[in-house]
Every structure is written in structure tokens, then in C-alpha cells.
């Protein structure tokens, strides 16, 4: 018992067999450990926001079990809530308050509040805090929501498309802040975004959500390395069978004198098999995260 307890406490979020809305992760377990930055990737309508709603107790699960800091997310104690920061795609700010009133109001509910961080972010992002929130632009509201969610230095920061409405400067500043946040190795971030360059810069792990199921959960680099384009010259000359490699081919493109295999699950064994069997010229192209995502999603 004593051996198991620290392991449970260490995991910030655990989700088993989650099913709600379009999300159906039966037989799958998701977890976020301290210091981890998880990028949640998926096409529009894949269920990213729904999954985040389920993980944070906004929506009840149809099936499965989620624990956040060891608690059911729909019944979180106040001290656990104060360790979570959440920025939704559609912000939840109170439109009748000014920006500074909103921050002051949010501060009332948190024992810990980093004034220096707030001042720095407001200054850096030029948030017009004197303006009524209803009069702010979408980007300004997004920045204010980010400041409000980060100011209490939560152990778990959940961001749903945080950079969608930000200008490039503010986006870079946000990524810089996120990198600073996780630098101590104790705080974690779950980040859903369509901007793959941001995910590549900050995420250590990736959850790939396709049609409601997690099809990849693991390191970002491993994902990038596992998806390659194998460019072959036609006619293809092989010594023996390419059994291992062909099993992993998810798509092929055939052009005059050239053939391309998109392989998911590329590893050393496959590389060795190709080197041993293929005698005609060929080339292995490693992909960036965006290209890998596009190839997987097609």
C-alpha cells in the first residue's frame, strides 16, 4: 500500500476508458505527470475540447474514470481547484467588468497570486485592462484569460487553443512563458493547439486524437521519428520480402519513375530491413510534426 500511494499522488491526471460525446477511449489510459507538457492534437471535431471538458469535470463522462490530483474532477476540493488553471477556446470572463477588475476578482479566490508575473504579462502583451471586457477584441480577451489562469501559478495548466486569437508576438511570448513554467519540473501543461510550431517548441509529449480515439500517446520526438516518407525509385528492386516495412505503410503515392510510401511506426528494425532488402536507390524523409500529422490524418 505504502509503495503505491506516492505513485498515485505523483500523477496529476489519470483517465481510463473515457467516453463522452464523440470521445471513446475504451481500453486506453491517459496520464499527465509533473513536469510534462502534453500537446493534444486532432482535427476539427475530433473531440479535443470535449476530452478537456471531461478531464476537468465540466462534463460528466458517459463511461470511464478520471482522477485529477487523486480526486473525481466533478467534485474537486477547493485546494485542488486552486492548483489548476484553465483557458478555454471561448473565454469565460465576466463581460461587464474591466480587465483589472476581472483580475482582482479572480485573485479573491486564490491564496497564491504572482503580482510580478501579472504585471509583466500585462505589460508584455499590452492588455488594455482599463477597458470593459465586452469592448475588448478577441485577442485581448484571450490574453487576459491567459493572465488570469497563469497568475496563481497552477500546478496543472490546461489550455484549449490558447494561441488561436493571438498575434505572432504574443504567441511567442506565451510559448516563452510556458517554457519558464515547466522549467522547474514540477508543473505541467496540457495544451491543445492547431499551431504545430508552438507544440513542437514546448511539448514533451503528444496525445493524438483521431475520431474520438487516442491513436498516439507518447514522446513528441518519437512521434516525429515514427512517421517517415520512404521515396523509392521505380522499378523497385528488392532481394527478398519487405514484410515488416509493408505492414506499416499507411498510404502510397505513385508518380512516374518514383513511388512514395508513408510509413507509420518507423524504427531501427524497419530501417535495417530496408537497407538489407532494397537494392534500387531509395531515400528516407523524416517529417516535422505538422507533416506527420497531415500524413496520419489523411
Amino acid at each position: 500500500m505504502n509503495d503505491r500511494k506516492p505513485a498515485v499522488l505523483e500523477t496529476l491526471v489519470t483517465a481510463k476508458d473515457v467516453a463522452l460525446g464523440v470521445v471513446n477511449c475504451a481500453g486506453q489510459t491517459l496520464s499527465i505527470m509533473p513536469g510534462q507538457v502534453v500537446g493534444l492534437l486532432g482535427k476539427n471535431g475530433a473531440g479535443k475540447t470535449t476530452l478537456l471538458d471531461g478531464l476537468l469535470g465540466y462534463t460528466f463522462l458517459n463511461a470511464g474514470e478520471v482522477t485529477v490530483f487523486g480526486h473525481n474532477p466533478t467534485e474537486l476540493p477547493a485546494d485542488v481547484c486552486s492548483q489548476i488553471g484553465f483557458v478555454a477556446q471561448q473565454d469565460d470572463l465576466l463581460p461587464w467588468l474591466t480587465g483589472s477588475e476581472m483580475l482582482a476578482a479572480t485573485r479573491l479566490f486564490y491564496p497564491n497570486w504572482n503580482h510580478q508575473l501579472v504585471d509583466r504579462l500585462l505589460d508584455r502583451w499590452s492588455v488594455p485592462v482599463w477597458q470593459n471586457i465586452s469592448e475588448m477584441s478577441v485577442g485581448e480577451r484571450q490574453k487576459l484569460a491567459l493572465v488570469a489562469a497563469m497568475a496563481h501559478e497552477p500546478k496543472l495548466l490546461v489550455l484549449d487553443e490558447p494561441a488561436a486569437s493571438l498575434d505572432p508576438l504574443a504567441r511567442r511570448a506565451l510559448i516563452g512563458e510556458l517554457i519558464d513554467i515547466v522549467a522547474d519540473g514540477e508543473r505541467s501543461i496540457l495544451l491543445s493547439s492547431h499551431i504545430f510550431s508552438d507544440i513542437e517548441r514546448v511539448a514533451s509529449d503528444v496525445w493524438l486524437l483521431e475520431k474520438g480515439r487516442i491513436t498516439y500517446q507518447g514522446g513528441l520526438d518519437e512521434l516525429k521519428e515514427s512517421v517517415v516518407r520512404l521515396h523509392l525509385t521505380r522499378p523497385l528492386q528488392v532481394n527478398g520480402s519487405l514484410e515488416l516495412t509493408t505492414k506499416q505503410v499507411i498510404r502510397t503515392e505513385v508518380n512516374t519513375g518514383r513511388e512514395t510510401w508513408i510509413i507509420r511506426g518507423w524504427n531501427e528494425a524497419l530501417a535495417a530491413e530496408c537497407a538489407a532488402q532494397i537494392t534500387s536507390p531509395y531515400q528516407v524523409e523524416a517529417l516535422g510534426l505538422e507533416d506527420a500529422f497531415v500524413e496520419i490524418s489523411q
Binding site: L97, S100, E101, A105, L108
Partner: peptide, 26 residues
């Protein structure tokens, strides 16, 4: 005047904020 507003803005009282949130308006 607009530039002076940040200095003028006062933090809302907890009770007032609660009432506003319960009522859904300012």
C-alpha cells in the same frame, strides 16, 4: 480620462462580485 481609469479602478468587493455572478450581470 481613459488613461487615468486603471488607477481609478477599484477592486470589486467579494460580496458584490458574488452577487453579480449569481445575477449574471453588473
Amino acid at each position: 480620462h481613459t488613461n487615468e481609469v486603471p488607477q481609478q479602478s477599484k477592486h470589486p468587493l467579494r460580496l458584490r462580485l458574488r452577487l453579480e455572478m449569481n445575477m449574471g450581470g453588473a
